[in-house]
Design a protein around this nucleic acid. Structure first.
Lengths: 243, 243
DNA sequence: GAGTGGTCTAGACCACTTT
DNA sequence: AAGTGGTCTAGACCACTCA
Protein backbone atom coordinates (compact mmCIF):
# COMPACT_ATOMS: atom_id res chain seq x y z
CA UNK A 1 0.00 0.00 0.00
CA UNK A 2 2.41 2.65 -1.22
CA UNK A 3 0.79 5.98 -2.01
CA UNK A 4 2.59 8.66 -3.95
CA UNK A 5 1.63 11.43 -1.49
CA UNK A 6 3.74 14.21 -2.85
CA UNK A 7 3.62 17.78 -1.61
CA UNK A 8 3.28 20.56 -4.14
CA UNK A 9 5.59 22.98 -2.39
CA UNK A 10 3.05 25.81 -2.44
CA UNK A 11 2.22 27.59 0.76
CA UNK A 12 2.42 26.37 4.35
CA UNK A 13 3.38 22.76 4.94
CA UNK A 14 0.23 21.88 6.84
CA UNK A 15 -1.92 23.02 3.92
CA UNK A 16 0.21 21.09 1.46
CA UNK A 17 -0.32 17.97 3.51
CA UNK A 18 -3.99 18.73 3.76
CA UNK A 19 -4.33 19.05 0.01
CA UNK A 20 -2.28 15.94 -0.63
CA UNK A 21 -4.75 13.92 1.41
CA UNK A 22 -7.97 15.75 0.56
CA UNK A 23 -7.33 15.38 -3.18
CA UNK A 24 -7.61 11.60 -3.46
CA UNK A 25 -10.56 11.59 -1.08
CA UNK A 26 -12.57 14.20 -2.96
CA UNK A 27 -11.79 12.59 -6.31
CA UNK A 28 -12.97 9.25 -5.00
CA UNK A 29 -9.59 7.57 -5.45
CA UNK A 30 -9.58 6.78 -1.74
CA UNK A 31 -12.98 5.30 -0.88
CA UNK A 32 -14.67 5.63 2.50
CA UNK A 33 -13.13 3.35 5.07
CA UNK A 34 -9.72 3.41 3.44
CA UNK A 35 -6.95 3.65 5.98
CA UNK A 36 -4.79 6.75 6.01
CA UNK A 37 -1.14 6.47 7.09
CA UNK A 38 -0.63 7.14 10.78
CA UNK A 39 0.82 10.42 12.00
CA UNK A 40 4.02 8.61 12.80
CA UNK A 41 4.33 7.24 9.28
CA UNK A 42 3.52 10.57 7.64
CA UNK A 43 6.07 12.26 9.87
CA UNK A 44 8.71 9.87 8.57
CA UNK A 45 7.67 9.87 4.93
CA UNK A 46 7.20 13.59 4.55
CA UNK A 47 10.04 14.57 6.85
CA UNK A 48 7.98 16.98 8.91
CA UNK A 49 7.24 17.16 12.60
CA UNK A 50 4.30 15.37 14.09
CA UNK A 51 2.61 18.64 15.14
CA UNK A 52 2.45 19.69 11.52
CA UNK A 53 0.94 16.40 10.40
CA UNK A 54 -1.50 16.56 13.28
CA UNK A 55 -2.57 20.05 12.34
CA UNK A 56 -3.36 18.93 8.79
CA UNK A 57 -5.27 15.82 9.87
CA UNK A 58 -7.15 17.63 12.63
CA UNK A 59 -8.33 20.13 10.03
CA UNK A 60 -9.55 17.40 7.72
CA UNK A 61 -11.31 15.69 10.63
CA UNK A 62 -12.99 18.97 11.54
CA UNK A 63 -14.26 19.20 7.98
CA UNK A 64 -15.61 15.68 8.25
CA UNK A 65 -13.43 14.22 5.51
CA UNK A 66 -11.73 11.72 7.78
CA UNK A 67 -12.51 9.99 11.05
CA UNK A 68 -9.92 9.42 13.70
CA UNK A 69 -9.90 6.95 16.55
CA UNK A 70 -7.13 6.18 18.93
CA UNK A 71 -5.40 2.93 18.31
CA UNK A 72 -7.74 2.17 15.38
CA UNK A 73 -6.17 4.88 13.24
CA UNK A 74 -7.52 7.31 10.68
CA UNK A 75 -9.85 6.36 7.85
CA UNK A 76 -11.71 8.16 5.08
CA UNK A 77 -15.12 9.10 6.48
CA UNK A 78 -18.32 7.57 5.20
CA UNK A 79 -19.88 9.84 2.59
CA UNK A 80 -16.77 12.00 2.82
CA UNK A 81 -17.21 13.43 -0.64
CA UNK A 82 -20.76 14.52 0.08
CA UNK A 83 -20.07 15.81 3.55
CA UNK A 84 -17.15 17.96 2.53
CA UNK A 85 -19.43 19.66 0.16
CA UNK A 86 -22.75 20.04 1.90
CA UNK A 87 -22.93 22.83 -0.62
CA UNK A 88 -22.16 20.67 -3.62
CA UNK A 89 -25.65 19.24 -3.67
CA UNK A 90 -25.39 16.23 -5.90
CA UNK A 91 -28.90 15.35 -6.95
CA UNK A 92 -27.92 11.86 -8.08
CA UNK A 93 -26.36 10.95 -4.75
CA UNK A 94 -29.26 12.57 -2.93
CA UNK A 95 -31.82 10.45 -4.72
CA UNK A 96 -29.72 7.30 -4.37
CA UNK A 97 -29.46 7.88 -0.64
CA UNK A 98 -33.23 7.96 -0.42
CA UNK A 99 -33.34 4.61 -2.17
CA UNK A 100 -34.67 5.94 -5.46
CA UNK A 101 -33.48 5.39 -9.00
CA UNK A 102 -31.90 8.45 -10.58
CA UNK A 103 -31.97 9.24 -14.28
CA UNK A 104 -31.08 12.43 -16.11
CA UNK A 105 -32.03 13.69 -19.55
CA UNK A 106 -30.09 16.34 -21.40
CA UNK A 107 -32.60 18.82 -22.74
CA UNK A 108 -30.16 21.26 -24.24
CA UNK A 109 -26.45 21.41 -24.88
CA UNK A 110 -24.72 24.05 -26.96
CA UNK A 111 -21.90 26.52 -26.91
CA UNK A 112 -21.56 30.11 -27.94
CA UNK A 113 -20.66 33.62 -26.85
CA UNK A 114 -22.23 34.64 -23.55
CA UNK A 115 -25.21 36.94 -23.71
CA UNK A 116 -25.32 39.85 -21.28
CA UNK A 117 -27.62 37.86 -18.99
CA UNK A 118 -25.38 34.81 -19.09
CA UNK A 119 -22.29 36.89 -18.46
CA UNK A 120 -23.96 38.29 -15.37
CA UNK A 121 -24.89 34.82 -14.14
CA UNK A 122 -21.37 33.51 -14.65
CA UNK A 123 -19.77 36.75 -13.46
CA UNK A 124 -17.62 36.84 -16.59
CA UNK A 125 -17.24 39.20 -19.52
CA UNK A 126 -19.97 39.17 -22.19
CA UNK A 127 -19.02 37.44 -25.42
CA UNK A 128 -16.83 34.88 -23.67
CA UNK A 129 -17.59 31.39 -24.98
CA UNK A 130 -19.85 29.46 -22.61
CA UNK A 131 -21.21 25.96 -22.56
CA UNK A 132 -24.93 25.75 -21.84
CA UNK A 133 -26.39 22.63 -20.32
CA UNK A 134 -29.97 22.00 -19.35
CA UNK A 135 -30.92 18.72 -17.73
CA UNK A 136 -33.95 17.15 -16.18
CA UNK A 137 -33.36 14.81 -13.25
CA UNK A 138 -35.89 12.10 -12.48
CA UNK A 139 -36.30 10.09 -9.30
CA UNK A 140 -38.06 6.79 -9.97
CA UNK A 141 -39.29 8.26 -13.23
CA UNK A 142 -40.83 11.38 -11.69
CA UNK A 143 -39.35 14.80 -12.50
CA UNK A 144 -37.34 15.90 -9.47
CA UNK A 145 -35.12 18.74 -10.57
CA UNK A 146 -34.35 21.08 -13.44
CA UNK A 147 -30.68 21.94 -13.85
CA UNK A 148 -29.68 25.02 -15.85
CA UNK A 149 -25.92 25.25 -16.04
CA UNK A 150 -23.32 27.51 -17.62
CA UNK A 151 -19.69 26.41 -17.78
CA UNK A 152 -16.61 28.31 -18.87
CA UNK A 153 -15.10 25.68 -21.19
CA UNK A 154 -11.65 27.16 -20.73
CA UNK A 155 -11.79 26.06 -17.11
CA UNK A 156 -12.86 22.51 -18.00
CA UNK A 157 -11.48 21.68 -21.46
CA UNK A 158 -12.33 17.97 -21.44
CA UNK A 159 -15.97 18.74 -20.89
CA UNK A 160 -16.59 18.84 -24.64
CA UNK A 161 -15.83 15.12 -24.84
CA UNK A 162 -18.13 14.15 -22.00
CA UNK A 163 -21.59 12.78 -22.68
CA UNK A 164 -22.77 12.76 -19.04
CA UNK A 165 -24.27 9.35 -19.58
CA UNK A 166 -23.46 7.92 -16.17
CA UNK A 167 -22.50 11.03 -14.26
CA UNK A 168 -24.11 14.37 -13.53
CA UNK A 169 -22.34 17.54 -14.69
CA UNK A 170 -22.10 18.66 -11.07
CA UNK A 171 -20.23 15.56 -9.97
CA UNK A 172 -18.13 15.55 -13.13
CA UNK A 173 -16.94 19.08 -12.42
CA UNK A 174 -16.46 18.37 -8.73
CA UNK A 175 -14.19 15.43 -9.48
CA UNK A 176 -12.14 17.04 -12.23
CA UNK A 177 -12.02 20.76 -11.70
CA UNK A 178 -10.60 21.96 -8.39
CA UNK A 179 -12.33 25.03 -7.01
CA UNK A 180 -11.20 27.56 -4.50
CA UNK A 181 -14.41 29.37 -3.72
CA UNK A 182 -18.12 28.76 -3.91
CA UNK A 183 -21.23 30.84 -3.38
CA UNK A 184 -24.76 29.70 -2.78
CA UNK A 185 -28.13 31.29 -2.90
CA UNK A 186 -31.14 29.43 -1.59
CA UNK A 187 -34.58 30.81 -2.18
CA UNK A 188 -38.17 29.86 -2.86
CA UNK A 189 -39.80 30.91 -6.11
CA UNK A 190 -42.80 30.19 -8.26
CA UNK A 191 -42.07 27.83 -11.15
CA UNK A 192 -40.94 29.69 -14.26
CA UNK A 193 -42.20 28.62 -17.68
CA UNK A 194 -39.26 26.33 -18.33
CA UNK A 195 -39.45 24.68 -14.92
CA UNK A 196 -43.21 24.31 -15.13
CA UNK A 197 -42.99 22.59 -18.49
CA UNK A 198 -40.22 20.18 -17.64
CA UNK A 199 -41.23 19.40 -14.07
CA UNK A 200 -44.88 19.01 -14.90
CA UNK A 201 -46.04 21.79 -12.60
CA UNK A 202 -48.45 24.67 -12.98
CA UNK A 203 -46.70 27.99 -13.50
CA UNK A 204 -46.02 29.68 -10.19
CA UNK A 205 -46.09 26.42 -8.21
CA UNK A 206 -43.77 26.64 -5.19
CA UNK A 207 -40.22 25.53 -5.93
CA UNK A 208 -36.91 25.49 -4.11
CA UNK A 209 -34.21 27.23 -6.14
CA UNK A 210 -30.54 26.72 -5.35
CA UNK A 211 -27.98 28.71 -7.28
CA UNK A 212 -24.32 27.94 -7.02
CA UNK A 213 -21.25 29.62 -8.45
CA UNK A 214 -17.74 28.28 -8.17
CA UNK A 215 -14.42 29.93 -8.89
CA UNK A 216 -10.83 28.93 -9.11
CA UNK A 217 -8.37 31.69 -8.44
CA UNK A 218 -10.89 34.45 -9.10
CA UNK A 219 -12.09 33.03 -12.41
CA UNK A 220 -15.58 31.58 -12.68
CA UNK A 221 -15.93 27.88 -13.43
CA UNK A 222 -19.66 27.35 -13.49
CA UNK A 223 -23.02 28.70 -12.49
CA UNK A 224 -25.96 26.42 -11.95
CA UNK A 225 -29.59 26.94 -11.05
CA UNK A 226 -31.31 23.91 -9.57
CA UNK A 227 -35.08 24.07 -9.40
CA UNK A 228 -37.03 21.44 -7.48
CA UNK A 229 -40.73 21.17 -6.72
CA UNK A 230 -41.65 22.03 -3.12
CA UNK A 231 -41.24 18.98 -0.95
CA UNK A 232 -39.03 17.10 -3.39
CA UNK A 233 -35.86 18.48 -1.90
CA UNK A 234 -35.01 19.54 1.60
CA UNK A 235 -31.66 20.87 2.74
CA UNK A 236 -30.70 19.63 6.15
CA UNK A 237 -27.72 20.65 8.19
CA UNK A 238 -26.56 19.79 11.66
CA UNK A 239 -24.07 21.95 13.46
CA UNK A 240 -21.97 21.87 16.55
CA UNK A 241 -20.19 25.07 17.46
CA UNK A 242 -16.80 23.55 18.06
CA UNK A 243 -15.25 20.15 17.82
CA UNK B 1 -9.21 47.27 29.52
CA UNK B 2 -9.11 44.37 31.95
CA UNK B 3 -11.24 41.43 30.94
CA UNK B 4 -12.10 38.64 33.36
CA UNK B 5 -11.25 35.88 30.83
CA UNK B 6 -11.48 32.88 33.09
CA UNK B 7 -11.20 29.31 31.95
CA UNK B 8 -13.84 26.82 33.04
CA UNK B 9 -11.48 23.91 33.50
CA UNK B 10 -13.56 21.59 31.35
CA UNK B 11 -11.92 19.72 28.54
CA UNK B 12 -8.84 20.62 26.51
CA UNK B 13 -7.16 23.92 27.19
CA UNK B 14 -7.49 25.20 23.64
CA UNK B 15 -11.25 24.67 23.73
CA UNK B 16 -11.49 26.40 27.10
CA UNK B 17 -9.70 29.39 25.65
CA UNK B 18 -11.90 29.24 22.58
CA UNK B 19 -15.05 29.29 24.66
CA UNK B 20 -13.75 32.03 26.91
CA UNK B 21 -13.34 34.29 23.89
CA UNK B 22 -16.30 33.11 21.80
CA UNK B 23 -18.70 33.68 24.67
CA UNK B 24 -18.46 37.47 24.96
CA UNK B 25 -18.44 37.78 21.16
CA UNK B 26 -21.57 35.71 20.61
CA UNK B 27 -23.38 37.43 23.46
CA UNK B 28 -22.55 40.81 22.00
CA UNK B 29 -20.53 41.94 25.02
CA UNK B 30 -17.52 42.39 22.75
CA UNK B 31 -18.68 44.36 19.72
CA UNK B 32 -17.18 44.05 16.22
CA UNK B 33 -13.85 45.83 15.98
CA UNK B 34 -13.03 45.30 19.64
CA UNK B 35 -9.41 44.38 20.15
CA UNK B 36 -8.60 40.95 21.53
CA UNK B 37 -5.48 40.52 23.66
CA UNK B 38 -2.45 39.46 21.69
CA UNK B 39 -1.17 35.92 21.77
CA UNK B 40 1.73 37.07 23.88
CA UNK B 41 -0.57 38.66 26.46
CA UNK B 42 -2.90 35.65 26.58
CA UNK B 43 0.10 33.39 27.00
CA UNK B 44 1.13 35.37 30.06
CA UNK B 45 -2.32 35.84 31.57
CA UNK B 46 -3.55 32.29 31.13
CA UNK B 47 -0.18 30.67 31.80
CA UNK B 48 -0.28 28.50 28.70
CA UNK B 49 2.08 28.14 25.78
CA UNK B 50 1.73 30.29 22.74
CA UNK B 51 0.96 27.30 20.50
CA UNK B 52 -2.11 26.57 22.58
CA UNK B 53 -3.34 30.14 22.38
CA UNK B 54 -2.64 30.17 18.67
CA UNK B 55 -4.63 27.01 18.14
CA UNK B 56 -7.65 28.52 19.89
CA UNK B 57 -7.47 31.81 17.99
CA UNK B 58 -6.81 30.13 14.64
CA UNK B 59 -9.95 28.10 15.17
CA UNK B 60 -12.02 31.19 15.92
CA UNK B 61 -10.57 32.93 12.87
CA UNK B 62 -11.47 29.93 10.73
CA UNK B 63 -15.03 30.19 12.00
CA UNK B 64 -15.06 33.85 11.05
CA UNK B 65 -15.58 35.14 14.59
CA UNK B 66 -12.36 37.12 14.66
CA UNK B 67 -10.01 38.70 12.14
CA UNK B 68 -6.27 38.59 12.53
CA UNK B 69 -3.63 40.76 10.94
CA UNK B 70 0.06 40.83 11.64
CA UNK B 71 1.19 43.74 13.66
CA UNK B 72 -2.34 45.16 13.72
CA UNK B 73 -3.56 42.45 16.08
CA UNK B 74 -6.77 40.50 16.46
CA UNK B 75 -10.22 42.07 16.52
CA UNK B 76 -13.80 40.86 16.68
CA UNK B 77 -14.99 40.39 13.09
CA UNK B 78 -17.66 42.57 11.56
CA UNK B 79 -21.01 40.84 11.86
CA UNK B 80 -19.30 38.15 13.91
CA UNK B 81 -22.46 37.15 15.70
CA UNK B 82 -24.33 36.67 12.45
CA UNK B 83 -21.51 34.94 10.64
CA UNK B 84 -20.90 32.41 13.39
CA UNK B 85 -24.49 31.49 13.08
CA UNK B 86 -25.22 31.54 9.38
CA UNK B 87 -27.79 29.11 10.64
CA UNK B 88 -29.17 31.40 13.31
CA UNK B 89 -31.02 33.55 10.81
CA UNK B 90 -31.98 36.65 12.70
CA UNK B 91 -34.75 38.29 10.76
CA UNK B 92 -34.37 41.63 12.54
CA UNK B 93 -30.68 41.90 11.73
CA UNK B 94 -31.34 40.72 8.19
CA UNK B 95 -33.87 43.45 7.55
CA UNK B 96 -31.73 46.09 9.23
CA UNK B 97 -28.79 45.10 7.03
CA UNK B 98 -30.94 45.73 3.97
CA UNK B 99 -31.68 49.19 5.32
CA UNK B 100 -35.29 48.46 6.22
CA UNK B 101 -37.19 49.11 9.44
CA UNK B 102 -38.06 45.98 11.36
CA UNK B 103 -41.11 45.57 13.54
CA UNK B 104 -42.62 42.48 15.08
CA UNK B 105 -46.10 41.76 16.39
CA UNK B 106 -46.89 38.97 18.81
CA UNK B 107 -49.90 37.12 17.47
CA UNK B 108 -50.06 34.43 20.11
CA UNK B 109 -48.36 33.67 23.38
CA UNK B 110 -49.42 30.98 25.80
CA UNK B 111 -48.16 28.05 27.75
CA UNK B 112 -49.46 24.55 28.37
CA UNK B 113 -48.73 20.86 28.07
CA UNK B 114 -47.36 19.83 24.69
CA UNK B 115 -49.72 18.16 22.29
CA UNK B 116 -48.47 15.12 20.43
CA UNK B 117 -47.70 17.24 17.37
CA UNK B 118 -45.83 19.82 19.45
CA UNK B 119 -43.88 17.13 21.25
CA UNK B 120 -42.79 15.77 17.90
CA UNK B 121 -41.71 19.22 16.72
CA UNK B 122 -39.72 19.89 19.87
CA UNK B 123 -38.48 16.29 20.09
CA UNK B 124 -39.62 16.14 23.70
CA UNK B 125 -42.10 14.05 25.63
CA UNK B 126 -45.82 14.88 25.22
CA UNK B 127 -47.39 16.68 28.13
CA UNK B 128 -44.22 18.61 28.94
CA UNK B 129 -45.01 22.29 29.48
CA UNK B 130 -44.17 24.35 26.38
CA UNK B 131 -44.28 28.02 25.60
CA UNK B 132 -45.92 28.83 22.28
CA UNK B 133 -45.01 32.02 20.46
CA UNK B 134 -46.31 33.20 17.13
CA UNK B 135 -44.97 36.44 15.66
CA UNK B 136 -45.32 38.39 12.47
CA UNK B 137 -42.24 40.29 11.32
CA UNK B 138 -42.64 43.34 9.11
CA UNK B 139 -40.06 45.09 6.98
CA UNK B 140 -41.00 48.70 6.34
CA UNK B 141 -44.55 47.81 7.27
CA UNK B 142 -44.87 44.91 4.84
CA UNK B 143 -45.26 41.36 6.21
CA UNK B 144 -41.92 39.61 5.77
CA UNK B 145 -41.98 36.52 7.93
CA UNK B 146 -44.19 34.37 10.11
CA UNK B 147 -42.47 32.86 13.14
CA UNK B 148 -44.01 29.86 14.90
CA UNK B 149 -41.95 28.94 17.91
CA UNK B 150 -42.03 26.41 20.71
CA UNK B 151 -39.76 26.82 23.73
CA UNK B 152 -39.09 24.50 26.64
CA UNK B 153 -39.46 27.04 29.48
CA UNK B 154 -37.32 24.88 31.76
CA UNK B 155 -34.38 25.63 29.46
CA UNK B 156 -35.03 29.38 29.50
CA UNK B 157 -36.70 30.27 32.81
CA UNK B 158 -36.47 34.04 32.47
CA UNK B 159 -38.39 33.92 29.22
CA UNK B 160 -41.69 34.30 31.09
CA UNK B 161 -40.67 37.82 32.13
CA UNK B 162 -39.68 38.92 28.65
CA UNK B 163 -42.03 40.97 26.50
CA UNK B 164 -39.93 40.86 23.33
CA UNK B 165 -40.58 44.53 22.81
CA UNK B 166 -37.15 45.43 21.43
CA UNK B 167 -35.73 42.03 20.67
CA UNK B 168 -36.81 39.00 18.70
CA UNK B 169 -37.22 35.69 20.52
CA UNK B 170 -34.51 34.18 18.33
CA UNK B 171 -31.93 36.74 19.35
CA UNK B 172 -33.08 36.68 22.96
CA UNK B 173 -32.50 32.93 23.14
CA UNK B 174 -29.23 33.16 21.26
CA UNK B 175 -27.88 35.66 23.74
CA UNK B 176 -29.07 33.99 26.91
CA UNK B 177 -29.32 30.28 26.34
CA UNK B 178 -26.13 28.53 25.26
CA UNK B 179 -26.70 25.71 22.80
CA UNK B 180 -24.55 22.79 21.88
CA UNK B 181 -26.25 21.55 18.77
CA UNK B 182 -28.53 22.85 16.06
CA UNK B 183 -30.39 21.34 13.16
CA UNK B 184 -31.86 23.09 10.14
CA UNK B 185 -34.26 22.17 7.43
CA UNK B 186 -34.68 24.45 4.47
CA UNK B 187 -37.46 23.83 2.02
CA UNK B 188 -39.97 25.51 -0.25
CA UNK B 189 -43.67 25.11 0.41
CA UNK B 190 -46.99 26.58 -0.50
CA UNK B 191 -48.34 29.02 2.08
CA UNK B 192 -50.43 27.28 4.74
CA UNK B 193 -53.64 28.88 5.98
CA UNK B 194 -51.93 30.63 8.88
CA UNK B 195 -49.08 31.96 6.76
CA UNK B 196 -51.43 33.04 4.00
CA UNK B 197 -53.60 34.99 6.40
CA UNK B 198 -50.80 36.75 8.26
CA UNK B 199 -48.49 37.37 5.32
CA UNK B 200 -51.25 38.54 3.04
CA UNK B 201 -50.70 35.82 0.46
CA UNK B 202 -52.99 33.48 -1.43
CA UNK B 203 -52.98 29.94 -0.06
CA UNK B 204 -50.31 27.85 -1.75
CA UNK B 205 -48.21 30.86 -2.73
CA UNK B 206 -44.51 29.93 -2.86
CA UNK B 207 -42.73 30.41 0.47
CA UNK B 208 -39.33 29.65 1.91
CA UNK B 209 -39.63 27.64 5.11
CA UNK B 210 -36.72 27.36 7.51
CA UNK B 211 -37.07 25.10 10.53
CA UNK B 212 -34.52 25.13 13.29
CA UNK B 213 -34.10 23.05 16.42
CA UNK B 214 -31.51 23.68 19.08
CA UNK B 215 -30.38 21.52 21.95
CA UNK B 216 -28.20 21.84 24.98
CA UNK B 217 -26.72 18.61 26.19
CA UNK B 218 -29.28 16.46 24.43
CA UNK B 219 -32.30 18.41 25.70
CA UNK B 220 -34.33 20.50 23.29
CA UNK B 221 -34.41 24.26 23.80
CA UNK B 222 -36.59 25.47 20.98
CA UNK B 223 -38.11 24.67 17.64
CA UNK B 224 -39.03 27.41 15.23
CA UNK B 225 -40.61 27.49 11.80
CA UNK B 226 -39.92 30.64 9.81
CA UNK B 227 -42.07 31.19 6.75
CA UNK B 228 -41.24 33.94 4.27
CA UNK B 229 -42.83 34.85 0.94
CA UNK B 230 -40.74 33.85 -2.08
CA UNK B 231 -38.24 36.55 -2.84
CA UNK B 232 -38.44 38.22 0.56
CA UNK B 233 -35.64 36.14 1.98
CA UNK B 234 -32.60 34.56 0.39
CA UNK B 235 -29.98 32.52 2.17
CA UNK B 236 -26.50 33.22 0.91
CA UNK B 237 -23.32 31.46 1.87
CA UNK B 238 -19.76 31.73 0.67
CA UNK B 239 -17.29 28.96 1.27
CA UNK B 240 -13.63 28.36 0.94
CA UNK B 241 -12.46 24.79 1.35
CA UNK B 242 -9.59 25.53 3.70
CA UNK B 243 -8.23 28.47 5.56
C1' DG C 1 1.43 -4.30 26.00
C1' DA C 2 1.71 -1.63 22.03
C1' DG C 3 0.04 1.46 18.67
C1' DT C 4 -2.61 5.32 17.88
C1' DG C 5 -4.30 9.95 18.31
C1' DG C 6 -4.90 14.28 21.72
C1' DT C 7 -2.70 17.58 23.83
C1' DC C 8 0.76 20.68 25.58
C1' DT C 9 5.32 22.96 26.04
C1' DA C 10 9.43 25.95 24.99
C1' DG C 11 11.67 27.83 21.71
C1' DA C 12 12.75 29.39 17.17
C1' DC C 13 12.58 31.87 12.72
C1' DC C 14 10.03 34.38 9.44
C1' DA C 15 6.64 37.75 7.19
C1' DC C 16 4.12 41.46 7.48
C1' DT C 17 2.61 46.02 8.92
C1' DT C 18 2.58 50.00 11.51
C1' DT C 19 5.25 53.52 13.80
C1' DA D 1 12.48 49.35 14.81
C1' DA D 2 9.16 46.89 17.05
C1' DG D 3 5.08 44.30 17.66
C1' DT D 4 2.14 40.99 15.84
C1' DG D 5 0.67 36.71 13.86
C1' DG D 6 2.21 32.28 10.91
C1' DT D 7 4.58 28.47 11.01
C1' DC D 8 7.53 24.72 12.30
C1' DT D 9 10.30 21.68 15.35
C1' DA D 10 11.49 18.15 18.92
C1' DG D 11 10.01 16.18 22.56
C1' DA D 12 6.89 14.83 26.13
C1' DC D 13 2.94 12.77 28.64
C1' DC D 14 -1.57 10.96 28.55
C1' DA D 15 -5.93 8.32 27.12
C1' DC D 16 -7.90 5.13 24.65
C1' DT D 17 -8.47 0.72 22.50
C1' DC D 18 -7.25 -3.28 20.27
C1' DA D 19 -4.80 -7.71 20.32
Amino acid sequence: MTDPLTLDGEGPLHLQIRRAIAGPILSGAWPPGRRIPSEHELTARLRVSRMTVNRALAGLAGEGLIERRRRAGTVVAARAAERAVFEIWDIGAEIARGGGAHRAEILRRDEGPATAEEAARLRCGPGLPVLRLTLRHLADGAPAQLEERLVDPAMAPDIRDETFAGITPGRWLLERVPWTEAEHRIAAAGACALAARHLGLPRGAPCLVVERRTWRGGRAITHVRLTSPAGAQVLVGRFKPEG
